[in-house]
């Protein structure tokens, strides 16, 4: 403290000058319109830049929270999408009031975090930090902002096991957005975790590389319209009536963090109906 006082005493003359100059400059900026507008224009610009810089830093530290908020918001928005609603309203036409009633909503979304993941095995599985206490049950589909992830195969109280798309037993029928058809079966051959195989697509279908594939509305597990991937390469030969297609997976499994478990509210009814369909051994096929 003494040092500060001594410094002030030694620098009294320059400090007095600065004080008087500031007083004069304040008068200039206060009473002269031109100087006032230029100064405050610059000051605002500087303030805006500092604000931008500060916001950049704070938002970087808030990324995790923001991510979680976005996942929650995505869930809410998905619940409000039209394809999430059943159209078999008992009263026929849907009124705005009816649109968001419980009876019309088809899916519910539960956010979860991936706590274990693998891409190197022949049959890869994912572990989520949510279980049946959070409403997660067997046969629920799992998606992420990039695309499909897998299907829940077991659920404990607080954790659940998901069969990844990168599992040789996983199969799904894609929807060709450009052609407006659902055809073929997508599966993983256990080699490259970025590519899937699409088979059983009739060779008379006009395919093009780059076509986008989504989950079909025939799917019993996944909601319609979730990205699966893009056609990378397609081959056909005269010996076979089907294409052999390589699909670039939409989901990057090495970056999985927050996912959404999709709960079909009418899953029980579908399970009962499923029992009447003669199924092949094992696997998760929709």
């Amino acid at each position: 403290m003494l040092v500060i006082f001594r410094w002030i005493r030694n620098q009294a003359y320059p400090l007095l000058y600065i004080l008087l100059l500031l007083s004069a400059v304040t008068q200039i900026f206060r009473y002269h319109f031109y100087q006032h507008s230029i100064y405050f224009g610059h000051a605002l610009g500087v303030h805006r830049n500092i604000d931008k810089w500060r916001t950049g830093i704070t938002s970087y530290f808030k990324l995790r929270t923001t991510n979680e908020q976005l996942v929650r918001e995505n869930g809410l928005l998905r619940n409000q999408l039209n394809w999430n609603l059943t159209s078999n309203s008992p009263n026929g036409a849907l009124s705005y009031k009816d649109t968001f009633t419980k009876t019309l909503i088809k899916y519910k979304y539960i956010p979860a975090r991936v706590i274990r993941n693998s891409v190197n095995e022949q049959n890869n599985f994912i572990v989520l930090d949510r279980g049946y206490k959070d409403g997660i049950k067997k046969h629920m589909s799992v998606i992420c902002p990039m695309g499909i992830v897998g299907v829940v195969v077991e659920s404990a109280a607080h954790y659940s096991l998901v069969m990844s798309v990168l599992n040789s037993k996983f199969e799904i029928t894609p929807y060709f957005y450009n052609l407006k058809i659902s055809q073929g079966v997508i599966s993983w051959n256990g080699e490259d975790p970025n590519y899937l195989d699409l088979e059983e697509v009739n060779r008379f279908v006009k395919l093009k590389n780059g076509m986008k594939l989504y989950t079909s509305n025939y799917s019993l597990l996944f909601p319609a319209g979730i990205p699966i991937g893009t056609i990378e390469k397609s081959e056909s030969n005269l010996k076979s009536n089907f294409y052999s297609i390589k699909v670039k997976l939409a989901t990057d499994f090495s970056q999985l963090d927050v996912v959404t478990v999709v709960k079909n509210i009418h899953q029980n009814e579908l399970d009962v109906l499923n029992k009447f369909i003669p199924s092949e051994e094992g696997g998760a096929h929709d």
Binding site: L21, A24, V25, Q27, I28, F29, R30, H32
Partner: peptide, 9 residues
């Protein structure tokens, strides 16, 4: 106001 003051100081 202010200009001559700043210059004088």
């Amino acid at each position: 106001l202010g200009m001559h003051t700043a210059a004088c100081v």
